[in-house]
Design a protein around this nucleic acid. Structure first.
Lengths: 180, 180
DNA sequence: CTTAAACGTGTATTTAATTACATGTTTTAA
DNA sequence: TTAAAACATGTAATTAAATACACGTTTAAG
């Protein structure tokens, strides 16, 4: 296996909240979920078929306008059970984040390598921009306590993402000071 | 593409330091590099052939004992150039770390979900253990200033990894306090 | 001396995931 | 009214990566 197919659980998870079309699911990756996971529609549509064959989801046709047929998917009881099973089984993986910049840095042996400073600066700008983006998301989505409690998991991981980017930026800033 | 084949650059990077066999390269992923990247020997051996065909590396045979032929690979000038090109080109990707726990958390809507506390505690233990492991690595490899400067990039990313795990643990601890 | 662990190199199979190809409908704004 | 953007659903081709299969040698420890 290339990975343990977590996309299927994302689909199940999304469908546990609302009925959705394949298009809706694909769109979720350009919005909320896109913050920490990616998937293309070309991966989603075949997987929806597989999940339906496996009895985890079903769909019903919905006509929009004159003749556009949408497949609106929803969870079956089996799918719901499968989702809960995944949610409650231990998560021991602790994935190494495949960060290309970190990889490059590993091969910079010399502390006085002239490319070090521009590399660090470039990353700092990227992570600062990401931080600002995440902070905007936070105020946009979780301005009040009620919204935080309504989607608590999402709120938590957004806070975590902000912490992480802040920490990354801090490390880069501290490192830049030692590089002169 | 499933990814942009960064493994090839890891191989080039490793070979820029020493001559290595495929076995040595595979071993590197259970040691140093394994801290932030993974690769199996079944991926490495074919890639070594491809890189040699492409003229980026060469090998010479080395006999160990009576008849064990090892292929000792080294960088060509072209390979060295390719490595430098990769090192110096901008890194704008900012990979979303595919963290399965974060994924599960996203689907926990209710702030009072009883599974929340055990999930957070489990992760805290994992990240604390990882933190201890990384700190041991740090003292083992970079006890003195000279060793830090000799492999500066590696030193930096180990520090970053420690910061990251500390931040992760801090976030989990803070979240656990709010979950009661 | 013998055996287990480590060294050493490959291939086959399967799954995941990306990019590109392919086609058509509906809605919205100029 | 017309054109672009968004909606909607697929397949094909390619590459990455994980697991399993497969074989042989050398070294170190009991």
């Amino acid at each position: 296996m290339a990975q343990k197919n977590k996309l299927q659980y994302i689909i199940l998870g999304l469908l546990s909240e609302h009925e959705l079309t394949g298009y809706d699911i694909a769109k979720a990756f350009t919005a909320d979920i896109g913050e920490f996971w990616n998937a293309n529609h070309s991966q989603i549509y075949p997987l929806l078929k597989r999940l339906e064959t496996a009895g985890l989801i079903t769909h019903q046709l919905s006509i929009t306008g004159e003749k556009l047929k949408k497949k609106v998917y929803s969870l079956t009881a089996v799918g719901q059970a499968q989702l809960q099973e995944w949610l409650h089984e231990p998560t021991t993986e602790l994935t190494a984040s495949k960060d290309e910049f970190i990889l490059k840095l590993y091969f910079i042996q010399d502390a006085h390598d002239p490319s070090l400073q521009p590399m660090l600066t470039e990353q700092l700008l990227l992570h600062q921009a990401k931080l600002v983006h995440l902070q905007k998301q936070m105020t946009r989505k979780f301005a009040n306590k009620a919204s935080q409690l309504a989607n608590y998991g999402h709120y938590l991981i957004l806070q975590h993402a902000i912490d992480r980017e802040q920490g990354y930026a801090d490390w880069l800033t501290a490192t830049l000071k030692n590089v002169d």
